[in-house]
Design a protein around this nucleic acid. Structure first.
Length: 187
DNA sequence: AGCGGGATCCAT
DNA sequence: TGGATCCCGCTC
């Protein structure tokens, strides 16, 4: 268990997406579900760099679905994939930029009832659904927090998963994870 | 109005 | 390796 946690302010997210992707690793996602705090430590993420990034949903421009990803930083962009799974992103950079960070794996910390390795599995385990689309991530019941006394971590950079359709963008090292962590979704 | 595909997961 | 399963975005 971590020591005292300090909630991340909105300006944490209003910075370069790649920087935020690095720095969000090792922080804690806190979600209160039915009065109970579920906590998972972020160990794997991917950066999606906006309309020029052919792997990003915002490369199709502003649509009903991508509205939240073009919204202000520090909010949740949740979407449905393959007709049955939900994935969660954290919106970064100023409103209108269309950048976000996909959560790919958490390390269970507290009140986490199921597997958290994989973007859809972690949503299920943390109780995140499409109802959380566009939700503020700087509130009491849904936020990220850091342990100021935590040891530094080593970050591994790899190509993103499942974006082979994105041409040269598929090769860019925009997947980041905590080196050696047991809960990484894929090798 | 219809069609094809997807930032996944699990069983085979 | 393929099936589940449905919303989105594009085309007709």
């Amino acid at each position: 268990m971590p020591n005292k946690l300090k909630k991340l302010p909105r300006n944490f997210f209003n910075r370069s997406t790649i920087l935020v992707a690095h720095e969000i690793l090792g922080t804690f996602l806190v979600h209160t579900v039915e009065g109970e705090q579920r906590i998972g430590r972020v160990v794997e993420v991917e950066a999606y760099l906006g309309p020029t990034d052919l792997a990003a949903h915002t490369s199709k421009g502003l649509t009903h679905r991508t509205r939240a990803m073009f919204g202000p930083p520090g909010h949740a962009y949740v979407y449905l994939v393959y007709g049955m799974h939900t994935c969660m992103n954290v919106v970064t950079e100023p409103e209108g930029t269309g950048t976000a960070i996909l959560l790919r794996a958490l390390e269970p910390v507290q009140n986490v009832p199921a597997k958290t390795s994989g973007p859809a599995l972690l949503c299920k385990a943390m109780g995140i659904t499409l109802a959380d689309y566009g939700r503020d991530l700087c509130g009491d019941d849904f936020h990220f927090a850091m342990d100021p006394s935590a040891e530094p971590i080593s970050v591994v950079e790899r190509p993103r998963i499942g974006v082979d359709y994105a041409g040269e963008w598929a090769q860019k090292p925009l997947r980041f994870y905590v080196e050696g962590n047991k809960y990484i979704s894929k090798k």
